[in-house]
Design a protein around this nucleic acid. Structure first.
Lengths: 206, 206
DNA sequence: AAAAAATGTGACAATGTTGTCATATATAGT
DNA sequence: ACTATATATGACAACATTGTCACATTTTTT
Protein backbone atom coordinates (compact mmCIF):
# COMPACT_ATOMS: atom_id res chain seq x y z
CA UNK A 1 0.00 0.00 0.00
CA UNK A 2 1.16 3.55 -0.67
CA UNK A 3 1.99 5.74 2.32
CA UNK A 4 -0.48 8.31 3.60
CA UNK A 5 1.95 10.88 2.28
CA UNK A 6 1.13 9.69 -1.21
CA UNK A 7 -2.58 9.44 -0.62
CA UNK A 8 -2.67 13.03 0.64
CA UNK A 9 -0.74 14.40 -2.30
CA UNK A 10 -2.29 17.19 -4.32
CA UNK A 11 -4.53 15.56 -6.85
CA UNK A 12 -2.62 16.76 -9.88
CA UNK A 13 0.66 15.27 -8.72
CA UNK A 14 -0.92 12.03 -7.65
CA UNK A 15 -2.60 11.71 -11.02
CA UNK A 16 0.68 12.38 -12.79
CA UNK A 17 2.36 9.55 -10.92
CA UNK A 18 -0.48 7.12 -11.49
CA UNK A 19 -0.59 8.00 -15.17
CA UNK A 20 3.12 7.46 -15.55
CA UNK A 21 2.81 4.09 -13.85
CA UNK A 22 -0.18 3.03 -15.95
CA UNK A 23 1.68 4.06 -19.09
CA UNK A 24 4.65 1.93 -18.18
CA UNK A 25 2.84 -1.13 -16.91
CA UNK A 26 0.49 -1.20 -19.87
CA UNK A 27 3.37 -1.16 -22.32
CA UNK A 28 5.78 -3.54 -20.63
CA UNK A 29 5.75 -6.71 -18.62
CA UNK A 30 6.17 -6.31 -14.89
CA UNK A 31 9.86 -7.19 -14.80
CA UNK A 32 10.64 -4.87 -17.68
CA UNK A 33 9.13 -1.84 -16.01
CA UNK A 34 11.70 0.35 -14.35
CA UNK A 35 11.21 2.75 -11.50
CA UNK A 36 13.64 5.09 -13.22
CA UNK A 37 11.28 5.45 -16.16
CA UNK A 38 8.28 6.05 -14.01
CA UNK A 39 9.87 8.85 -12.02
CA UNK A 40 11.23 10.34 -15.19
CA UNK A 41 7.79 10.53 -16.77
CA UNK A 42 6.05 11.52 -13.56
CA UNK A 43 8.70 14.19 -13.06
CA UNK A 44 9.29 13.44 -9.43
CA UNK A 45 12.66 12.93 -7.77
CA UNK A 46 13.85 9.50 -6.93
CA UNK A 47 13.65 10.08 -3.19
CA UNK A 48 10.00 11.00 -3.44
CA UNK A 49 9.07 7.73 -5.04
CA UNK A 50 10.45 5.85 -2.09
CA UNK A 51 8.58 8.15 0.22
CA UNK A 52 5.35 7.08 -1.45
CA UNK A 53 5.91 3.40 -2.18
CA UNK A 54 8.04 0.67 -0.73
CA UNK A 55 9.11 -0.55 -4.13
CA UNK A 56 7.87 -1.47 -7.58
CA UNK A 57 5.64 -4.23 -6.31
CA UNK A 58 3.94 -1.91 -3.87
CA UNK A 59 3.06 0.48 -6.66
CA UNK A 60 1.93 -2.32 -8.92
CA UNK A 61 -0.40 -3.87 -6.37
CA UNK A 62 -1.91 -0.45 -5.83
CA UNK A 63 -2.59 -0.08 -9.54
CA UNK A 64 -4.16 -3.52 -9.75
CA UNK A 65 -6.40 -2.54 -6.91
CA UNK A 66 -7.56 0.56 -8.76
CA UNK A 67 -8.19 -1.46 -11.89
CA UNK A 68 -10.12 -4.16 -10.10
CA UNK A 69 -12.39 -1.69 -8.39
CA UNK A 70 -13.08 -0.03 -11.69
CA UNK A 71 -13.88 -3.37 -13.27
CA UNK A 72 -16.15 -4.39 -10.43
CA UNK A 73 -18.25 -1.30 -11.08
CA UNK A 74 -18.73 -2.51 -14.61
CA UNK A 75 -19.76 -6.01 -13.63
CA UNK A 76 -21.86 -5.07 -10.63
CA UNK A 77 -25.16 -4.88 -12.44
CA UNK A 78 -24.78 -8.19 -14.21
CA UNK A 79 -23.47 -9.96 -11.14
CA UNK A 80 -26.27 -8.85 -8.85
CA UNK A 81 -29.00 -9.91 -11.29
CA UNK A 82 -27.67 -13.23 -12.44
CA UNK A 83 -30.35 -15.29 -10.70
CA UNK A 84 -32.72 -15.62 -13.61
CA UNK A 85 -30.04 -16.26 -16.22
CA UNK A 86 -28.81 -19.58 -17.45
CA UNK A 87 -25.08 -20.09 -17.51
CA UNK A 88 -24.30 -19.24 -21.09
CA UNK A 89 -26.42 -16.12 -21.10
CA UNK A 90 -24.55 -14.98 -18.04
CA UNK A 91 -21.27 -15.62 -19.84
CA UNK A 92 -22.57 -13.63 -22.77
CA UNK A 93 -23.43 -10.70 -20.52
CA UNK A 94 -20.14 -10.79 -18.63
CA UNK A 95 -18.25 -10.83 -21.88
CA UNK A 96 -20.28 -7.91 -23.13
CA UNK A 97 -19.44 -5.98 -19.96
CA UNK A 98 -15.81 -6.96 -20.45
CA UNK A 99 -15.74 -5.60 -23.96
CA UNK A 100 -17.23 -2.31 -22.84
CA UNK A 101 -14.69 -2.08 -20.06
CA UNK A 102 -11.87 -2.82 -22.47
CA UNK A 103 -12.92 -0.07 -24.82
CA UNK A 104 -13.28 2.45 -22.02
CA UNK A 105 -10.01 1.56 -20.28
CA UNK A 106 -7.77 -0.10 -22.84
CA UNK A 107 -4.66 0.47 -20.76
CA UNK A 108 -6.19 -1.24 -17.76
CA UNK A 109 -7.00 -4.23 -19.89
CA UNK A 110 -3.46 -4.34 -21.21
CA UNK A 111 -2.13 -4.40 -17.68
CA UNK A 112 -4.42 -7.24 -16.71
CA UNK A 113 -3.46 -8.99 -19.90
CA UNK A 114 0.22 -8.77 -19.04
CA UNK A 115 -0.54 -10.13 -15.62
CA UNK A 116 -2.39 -13.01 -17.19
CA UNK A 117 0.31 -13.83 -19.68
CA UNK A 118 3.28 -13.43 -17.43
CA UNK A 119 3.20 -16.24 -14.96
CA UNK A 120 5.50 -14.91 -12.27
CA UNK A 121 5.41 -14.53 -8.50
CA UNK A 122 3.01 -11.64 -8.69
CA UNK A 123 0.67 -13.71 -10.78
CA UNK A 124 0.63 -16.38 -8.12
CA UNK A 125 -0.08 -13.77 -5.49
CA UNK A 126 -2.92 -12.20 -7.41
CA UNK A 127 -4.45 -14.42 -10.00
CA UNK A 128 -4.06 -18.14 -9.64
CA UNK A 129 -6.59 -18.26 -6.80
CA UNK A 130 -8.99 -16.03 -8.65
CA UNK A 131 -9.01 -18.22 -11.69
CA UNK A 132 -9.69 -21.27 -9.59
CA UNK A 133 -12.53 -19.42 -7.90
CA UNK A 134 -13.99 -18.36 -11.23
CA UNK A 135 -13.82 -21.96 -12.39
CA UNK A 136 -15.61 -23.08 -9.25
CA UNK A 137 -18.40 -20.59 -9.67
CA UNK A 138 -18.82 -21.54 -13.30
CA UNK A 139 -18.80 -25.23 -12.43
CA UNK A 140 -21.62 -24.64 -9.96
CA UNK A 141 -23.73 -22.79 -12.49
CA UNK A 142 -23.11 -25.45 -15.09
CA UNK A 143 -24.26 -28.16 -12.71
CA UNK A 144 -27.41 -26.21 -11.94
CA UNK A 145 -28.18 -25.94 -15.65
CA UNK A 146 -27.64 -29.66 -15.94
CA UNK A 147 -30.29 -30.41 -13.35
CA UNK A 148 -32.59 -27.96 -15.09
CA UNK A 149 -32.14 -30.04 -18.22
CA UNK A 150 -30.49 -27.23 -20.15
CA UNK A 151 -27.06 -28.73 -20.53
CA UNK A 152 -26.16 -32.28 -21.53
CA UNK A 153 -25.32 -34.37 -18.48
CA UNK A 154 -22.44 -36.19 -20.14
CA UNK A 155 -20.40 -33.01 -20.63
CA UNK A 156 -17.53 -32.83 -18.16
CA UNK A 157 -18.36 -29.85 -15.99
CA UNK A 158 -14.78 -29.00 -15.12
CA UNK A 159 -13.59 -29.09 -18.70
CA UNK A 160 -16.49 -26.94 -19.80
CA UNK A 161 -15.74 -24.39 -17.08
CA UNK A 162 -12.08 -24.32 -18.09
CA UNK A 163 -12.92 -23.74 -21.73
CA UNK A 164 -15.10 -20.80 -20.83
CA UNK A 165 -12.44 -19.26 -18.60
CA UNK A 166 -9.85 -19.79 -21.29
CA UNK A 167 -11.93 -18.34 -24.10
CA UNK A 168 -13.32 -15.38 -22.21
CA UNK A 169 -10.26 -14.16 -20.32
CA UNK A 170 -8.39 -13.69 -23.54
CA UNK A 171 -10.19 -10.63 -24.82
CA UNK A 172 -8.54 -9.73 -28.07
CA UNK A 173 -6.14 -7.06 -26.90
CA UNK A 174 -4.98 -6.45 -30.44
CA UNK A 175 -8.27 -4.79 -31.23
CA UNK A 176 -7.89 -2.24 -28.49
CA UNK A 177 -6.27 0.33 -30.68
CA UNK A 178 -8.44 3.33 -30.06
CA UNK A 179 -9.85 4.97 -33.14
CA UNK A 180 -12.52 2.59 -34.34
CA UNK A 181 -14.15 2.22 -30.96
CA UNK A 182 -17.59 1.39 -32.18
CA UNK A 183 -16.45 -0.91 -34.93
CA UNK A 184 -14.26 -2.80 -32.49
CA UNK A 185 -17.14 -3.20 -30.13
CA UNK A 186 -19.35 -4.73 -32.78
CA UNK A 187 -16.55 -6.98 -33.97
CA UNK A 188 -15.74 -8.25 -30.53
CA UNK A 189 -19.35 -8.96 -29.69
CA UNK A 190 -19.84 -10.75 -32.95
CA UNK A 191 -16.78 -12.91 -32.30
CA UNK A 192 -18.12 -13.73 -28.88
CA UNK A 193 -21.48 -14.75 -30.25
CA UNK A 194 -19.82 -17.03 -32.74
CA UNK A 195 -17.78 -18.67 -30.01
CA UNK A 196 -20.81 -19.22 -27.83
CA UNK A 197 -22.75 -20.59 -30.76
CA UNK A 198 -20.10 -23.25 -31.26
CA UNK A 199 -20.08 -24.09 -27.58
CA UNK A 200 -23.84 -24.29 -27.51
CA UNK A 201 -24.53 -26.33 -30.58
CA UNK A 202 -21.26 -27.80 -31.74
CA UNK A 203 -19.91 -27.76 -35.25
CA UNK A 204 -20.92 -31.18 -36.51
CA UNK A 205 -23.76 -31.46 -38.94
CA UNK A 206 -26.61 -33.87 -38.43
CA UNK B 1 23.54 -19.00 -35.42
CA UNK B 2 26.39 -20.30 -33.30
CA UNK B 3 29.92 -20.07 -34.69
CA UNK B 4 31.59 -23.09 -36.24
CA UNK B 5 33.84 -23.03 -33.20
CA UNK B 6 30.85 -23.96 -31.10
CA UNK B 7 29.53 -26.52 -33.53
CA UNK B 8 32.93 -28.27 -33.57
CA UNK B 9 33.20 -28.40 -29.82
CA UNK B 10 33.72 -31.75 -28.16
CA UNK B 11 30.31 -33.25 -27.68
CA UNK B 12 30.43 -33.29 -23.90
CA UNK B 13 31.13 -29.58 -23.62
CA UNK B 14 28.57 -28.67 -26.21
CA UNK B 15 25.96 -30.73 -24.39
CA UNK B 16 26.84 -29.05 -21.11
CA UNK B 17 26.26 -25.63 -22.61
CA UNK B 18 23.00 -26.59 -24.26
CA UNK B 19 21.77 -28.21 -21.07
CA UNK B 20 22.58 -25.11 -19.03
CA UNK B 21 20.73 -22.97 -21.55
CA UNK B 22 17.70 -25.26 -21.66
CA UNK B 23 17.59 -25.27 -17.88
CA UNK B 24 17.57 -21.51 -17.73
CA UNK B 25 15.17 -20.81 -20.56
CA UNK B 26 12.70 -23.41 -19.34
CA UNK B 27 12.58 -21.88 -15.89
CA UNK B 28 12.53 -18.19 -16.73
CA UNK B 29 11.11 -15.83 -19.28
CA UNK B 30 13.49 -14.71 -21.99
CA UNK B 31 14.27 -11.33 -20.48
CA UNK B 32 14.90 -12.82 -17.08
CA UNK B 33 17.49 -15.27 -18.32
CA UNK B 34 21.03 -14.06 -17.75
CA UNK B 35 24.10 -15.06 -19.62
CA UNK B 36 25.98 -14.97 -16.33
CA UNK B 37 23.83 -17.80 -15.02
CA UNK B 38 24.24 -19.89 -18.11
CA UNK B 39 28.02 -19.71 -18.14
CA UNK B 40 28.09 -20.37 -14.42
CA UNK B 41 26.09 -23.58 -14.81
CA UNK B 42 27.82 -24.62 -18.00
CA UNK B 43 31.15 -23.96 -16.34
CA UNK B 44 32.64 -22.06 -19.23
CA UNK B 45 34.41 -18.72 -19.01
CA UNK B 46 32.61 -15.59 -20.11
CA UNK B 47 34.91 -15.06 -23.04
CA UNK B 48 34.10 -18.47 -24.42
CA UNK B 49 30.41 -17.76 -24.53
CA UNK B 50 31.00 -14.81 -26.79
CA UNK B 51 33.23 -16.92 -28.96
CA UNK B 52 30.30 -19.28 -29.54
CA UNK B 53 27.33 -16.96 -29.71
CA UNK B 54 26.78 -13.33 -30.58
CA UNK B 55 24.53 -12.76 -27.62
CA UNK B 56 21.58 -14.15 -25.71
CA UNK B 57 19.24 -13.93 -28.67
CA UNK B 58 21.63 -15.90 -30.84
CA UNK B 59 21.71 -18.73 -28.33
CA UNK B 60 17.97 -18.62 -27.87
CA UNK B 61 17.18 -18.84 -31.55
CA UNK B 62 19.51 -21.80 -31.78
CA UNK B 63 17.64 -23.56 -28.99
CA UNK B 64 14.28 -22.87 -30.59
CA UNK B 65 15.63 -24.37 -33.77
CA UNK B 66 16.63 -27.55 -31.98
CA UNK B 67 13.24 -27.75 -30.31
CA UNK B 68 11.34 -27.22 -33.51
CA UNK B 69 13.23 -29.89 -35.33
CA UNK B 70 12.56 -32.31 -32.53
CA UNK B 71 8.89 -31.45 -32.59
CA UNK B 72 8.67 -31.83 -36.34
CA UNK B 73 9.91 -35.40 -36.00
CA UNK B 74 6.98 -36.07 -33.71
CA UNK B 75 4.39 -34.59 -36.01
CA UNK B 76 5.83 -35.93 -39.26
CA UNK B 77 3.79 -39.10 -39.39
CA UNK B 78 0.50 -37.40 -38.71
CA UNK B 79 1.20 -34.51 -41.04
CA UNK B 80 2.13 -36.67 -44.01
CA UNK B 81 -0.97 -38.85 -43.71
CA UNK B 82 -3.61 -36.26 -43.07
CA UNK B 83 -5.34 -36.70 -46.42
CA UNK B 84 -7.98 -39.16 -45.33
CA UNK B 85 -8.77 -37.47 -42.06
CA UNK B 86 -11.49 -34.95 -41.35
CA UNK B 87 -10.48 -31.79 -39.57
CA UNK B 88 -11.33 -32.70 -36.01
CA UNK B 89 -9.74 -36.11 -36.19
CA UNK B 90 -6.58 -34.45 -37.42
CA UNK B 91 -6.74 -32.05 -34.49
CA UNK B 92 -7.19 -35.01 -32.18
CA UNK B 93 -4.11 -36.70 -33.62
CA UNK B 94 -1.96 -33.58 -33.52
CA UNK B 95 -2.91 -33.00 -29.94
CA UNK B 96 -2.06 -36.58 -29.09
CA UNK B 97 1.35 -36.13 -30.70
CA UNK B 98 1.72 -32.92 -28.76
CA UNK B 99 1.02 -34.61 -25.47
CA UNK B 100 3.54 -37.33 -26.18
CA UNK B 101 6.11 -34.71 -27.11
CA UNK B 102 5.40 -32.79 -23.93
CA UNK B 103 5.92 -35.82 -21.76
CA UNK B 104 9.14 -36.74 -23.49
CA UNK B 105 10.60 -33.21 -23.54
CA UNK B 106 8.88 -31.26 -20.80
CA UNK B 107 11.57 -28.58 -20.75
CA UNK B 108 11.18 -27.95 -24.47
CA UNK B 109 7.49 -27.48 -23.99
CA UNK B 110 8.07 -25.06 -21.17
CA UNK B 111 10.35 -23.01 -23.37
CA UNK B 112 7.77 -22.90 -26.15
CA UNK B 113 5.16 -22.04 -23.59
CA UNK B 114 7.19 -19.08 -22.36
CA UNK B 115 7.59 -17.94 -25.93
CA UNK B 116 3.86 -18.16 -26.42
CA UNK B 117 2.97 -16.30 -23.26
CA UNK B 118 5.57 -13.60 -23.47
CA UNK B 119 4.64 -11.37 -26.34
CA UNK B 120 7.93 -9.61 -26.98
CA UNK B 121 10.12 -8.85 -29.99
CA UNK B 122 11.32 -12.41 -30.23
CA UNK B 123 7.76 -13.63 -30.30
CA UNK B 124 7.05 -11.40 -33.26
CA UNK B 125 10.13 -12.70 -35.00
CA UNK B 126 9.26 -16.32 -34.44
CA UNK B 127 5.64 -16.95 -33.73
CA UNK B 128 3.11 -14.44 -34.89
CA UNK B 129 3.46 -15.54 -38.52
CA UNK B 130 3.30 -19.18 -37.55
CA UNK B 131 0.07 -18.79 -35.71
CA UNK B 132 -1.50 -16.99 -38.62
CA UNK B 133 -0.31 -19.77 -40.91
CA UNK B 134 -1.73 -22.43 -38.62
CA UNK B 135 -5.03 -20.59 -38.62
CA UNK B 136 -5.02 -20.46 -42.39
CA UNK B 137 -4.37 -24.15 -42.75
CA UNK B 138 -7.09 -24.94 -40.26
CA UNK B 139 -9.50 -22.60 -42.01
CA UNK B 140 -8.89 -24.42 -45.26
CA UNK B 141 -9.53 -27.81 -43.76
CA UNK B 142 -12.67 -26.56 -42.07
CA UNK B 143 -14.01 -25.24 -45.35
CA UNK B 144 -13.31 -28.56 -47.01
CA UNK B 145 -15.27 -30.35 -44.32
CA UNK B 146 -18.09 -27.91 -44.83
CA UNK B 147 -18.39 -28.80 -48.51
CA UNK B 148 -18.25 -32.47 -47.55
CA UNK B 149 -21.27 -31.84 -45.35
CA UNK B 150 -19.43 -32.68 -42.15
CA UNK B 151 -19.47 -29.26 -40.55
CA UNK B 152 -22.37 -26.83 -40.29
CA UNK B 153 -22.14 -24.14 -42.95
CA UNK B 154 -23.27 -21.35 -40.62
CA UNK B 155 -20.28 -21.74 -38.32
CA UNK B 156 -17.79 -18.92 -38.82
CA UNK B 157 -14.70 -20.63 -40.17
CA UNK B 158 -12.23 -18.10 -38.84
CA UNK B 159 -13.65 -18.13 -35.35
CA UNK B 160 -13.65 -21.91 -35.32
CA UNK B 161 -10.02 -22.02 -36.42
CA UNK B 162 -9.07 -19.52 -33.74
CA UNK B 163 -10.78 -21.51 -31.04
CA UNK B 164 -8.90 -24.62 -32.03
CA UNK B 165 -5.56 -22.81 -32.08
CA UNK B 166 -6.32 -21.25 -28.73
CA UNK B 167 -7.42 -24.47 -27.07
CA UNK B 168 -4.70 -26.69 -28.49
CA UNK B 169 -1.63 -24.50 -28.15
CA UNK B 170 -2.15 -24.22 -24.43
CA UNK B 171 -1.15 -27.70 -23.40
CA UNK B 172 -1.45 -27.84 -19.65
CA UNK B 173 2.11 -27.17 -18.64
CA UNK B 174 1.27 -27.63 -15.00
CA UNK B 175 0.89 -31.33 -15.54
CA UNK B 176 4.38 -31.72 -16.87
CA UNK B 177 5.88 -32.57 -13.55
CA UNK B 178 7.60 -35.81 -14.30
CA UNK B 179 6.80 -38.70 -12.01
CA UNK B 180 3.33 -39.75 -13.05
CA UNK B 181 4.14 -39.83 -16.74
CA UNK B 182 1.56 -42.37 -17.72
CA UNK B 183 -1.16 -40.94 -15.55
CA UNK B 184 -0.54 -37.47 -16.99
CA UNK B 185 -0.77 -38.83 -20.48
CA UNK B 186 -4.14 -40.42 -19.85
CA UNK B 187 -5.41 -37.30 -18.12
CA UNK B 188 -4.33 -34.97 -20.88
CA UNK B 189 -5.82 -37.14 -23.58
CA UNK B 190 -9.06 -37.42 -21.68
CA UNK B 191 -9.23 -33.66 -21.29
CA UNK B 192 -8.64 -33.24 -24.98
CA UNK B 193 -11.42 -35.67 -25.84
CA UNK B 194 -13.80 -33.76 -23.62
CA UNK B 195 -12.89 -30.50 -25.30
CA UNK B 196 -13.38 -31.91 -28.76
CA UNK B 197 -16.67 -33.46 -27.73
CA UNK B 198 -17.95 -30.03 -26.74
CA UNK B 199 -16.73 -28.51 -29.96
CA UNK B 200 -18.30 -31.30 -31.99
CA UNK B 201 -21.70 -31.53 -30.41
CA UNK B 202 -22.17 -28.49 -28.22
CA UNK B 203 -23.37 -28.44 -24.67
CA UNK B 204 -27.06 -27.65 -25.09
CA UNK B 205 -29.60 -30.36 -24.62
CA UNK B 206 -32.31 -31.03 -27.15
C1' DA C 1 8.11 33.87 15.27
C1' DA C 2 10.37 29.83 16.92
C1' DA C 3 10.30 24.95 17.14
C1' DA C 4 8.75 20.63 15.53
C1' DA C 5 7.00 17.66 12.13
C1' DA C 6 6.34 16.42 7.51
C1' DT C 7 7.78 16.31 3.01
C1' DG C 8 11.06 16.96 -0.90
C1' DT C 9 15.52 16.19 -3.10
C1' DG C 10 19.39 14.34 -5.69
C1' DA C 11 24.05 12.61 -5.03
C1' DC C 12 25.89 8.30 -4.14
C1' DA C 13 27.14 3.63 -2.66
C1' DA C 14 26.06 -0.93 -3.65
C1' DT C 15 25.07 -4.15 -6.79
C1' DG C 16 24.91 -6.52 -10.99
C1' DT C 17 25.23 -7.37 -15.97
C1' DT C 18 27.06 -7.12 -20.51
C1' DG C 19 30.48 -7.31 -24.14
C1' DT C 20 35.53 -6.57 -25.08
C1' DC C 21 40.29 -7.28 -25.28
C1' DA C 22 44.99 -8.43 -24.26
C1' DT C 23 47.11 -12.37 -23.31
C1' DA C 24 47.70 -17.46 -22.82
C1' DT C 25 47.33 -21.91 -24.64
C1' DA C 26 46.58 -25.44 -28.03
C1' DT C 27 46.43 -27.20 -32.72
C1' DA C 28 47.74 -27.49 -37.51
C1' DG C 29 50.68 -26.56 -41.32
C1' DT C 30 55.36 -26.44 -43.37
C1' DA D 1 61.25 -27.02 -34.56
C1' DC D 2 58.90 -22.85 -36.01
C1' DT D 3 55.17 -20.20 -37.51
C1' DA D 4 50.50 -19.28 -38.17
C1' DT D 5 45.99 -19.97 -36.95
C1' DA D 6 42.31 -21.16 -33.86
C1' DT D 7 40.58 -21.33 -29.37
C1' DA D 8 40.38 -20.22 -24.30
C1' DT D 9 40.35 -17.14 -20.51
C1' DG D 10 39.09 -13.80 -16.98
C1' DA D 11 39.98 -9.02 -15.69
C1' DC D 12 37.82 -4.96 -16.73
C1' DA D 13 35.42 -0.85 -18.59
C1' DA D 14 31.01 0.70 -19.48
C1' DC D 15 26.64 0.97 -18.24
C1' DA D 16 22.36 0.73 -15.64
C1' DT D 17 19.39 0.32 -11.73
C1' DT D 18 18.06 0.26 -7.06
C1' DG D 19 17.41 1.97 -2.38
C1' DT D 20 19.43 5.18 1.14
C1' DC D 21 20.63 9.19 3.55
C1' DA D 22 22.01 13.74 4.88
C1' DC D 23 20.33 17.93 4.03
C1' DA D 24 16.82 21.46 2.22
C1' DT D 25 12.32 23.21 2.13
C1' DT D 26 7.63 23.60 3.45
C1' DT D 27 3.85 23.17 6.63
C1' DT D 28 1.94 22.81 11.14
C1' DT D 29 1.94 23.53 15.98
C1' DT D 30 2.62 26.19 20.06
Amino acid sequence: MPTSTFLNLEIEKKARIIKAAIDEFSEKQYEQVQISDIIKHAKIPRGSFYQYFTDKEDLYLYLIDIIRNEKMKFLQDTLSNYEGLNFLDLVRKLYDDGVKFALKFPQYVKILDHLLKNKNEIYDKLMSDNIKIAEDIYANLIDKDKTKGLIKEDIDTRTFAKIIVQLTTNIAVEELDMNYQDESYQKMLERNNQVLKIIEQGVLKG
